[in-house]
């Protein structure tokens, strides 16, 4: 019984603290192209960026690199940023829903990243990454065969 009370109290405590954090530090974070670029190049100074695509909701930024085997990602995590340089083959698929494209990644700590894009050409580029992934997978099958 005492353990259950402690558990219930802990859950209430967590809820209270999360509400307080939300109230005292309301999230106003947004990712600008310049900020994303600065952070990415700080962590990957040798990469040459050929194209930058920022999600409309300012939550994610994708960099196409001159080394086409890799992609650069900057992703808003609450009020902080997560920067990734991922092999292009780690893009395993894409779910397209109107202007939203959710890229599925072979990354346990970043399994999906969603872009909201008005520009048709940007959407095509992102969807193309998934097609590349599918082609890559098919090539593997061909090679295995």
């Amino acid at each position: 019984m005492a353990k259950l009370l402690i558990l219930a109290g802990s859950i209430l405590g967590i809820a209270l603290l999360v509400v307080m954090a939300k109230y005292l530090w309301p999230s106003r974070s947004a990712l600008s192209k310049e900020h994303a670029l600065r952070r990415y190049t700080h962590e990957n100074p040798d990469d040459k960026i050929s194209q930058t695509i920022v999600s409309n909701d300012a939550g994610a930024c994708l960099f196409l690199l001159e080394d086409s085997h890799y992609l650069g990602l900057v992703y808003l995590m609450g009020d902080r940023l997560t920067v990734r340089r991922i092999p292009r083959s780690d893009v395993s698929g894409a779910l397209v829903n109107d202007n939203n494209i959710a890229l599925t990644l072979n990354d346990f700590t970043m399994p999906q990243i969603t872009f909201t894009l008005d520009s048709l050409s940007d959407r095509q580029v992102i969807a193309g990454l998934a097609s590349d992934a599918i082609l890559h997978a098919q090539n593997k099958e061909v090679q295995n065969a």
Binding site: S10, L17, V18, L24, W25, M77, G78, D79, R80
Partner: peptide
């Protein structure tokens, strides 16, 4: 600085650790 989602994850990890 606190962030609500980060705080929630930290505290749930804390509860789970017990």
């Amino acid at each position: 600085v606190y962030d609500a989602k980060d705080t929630a994850t930290s505290l749930i990890m804390g509860l789970g650790s017990t």
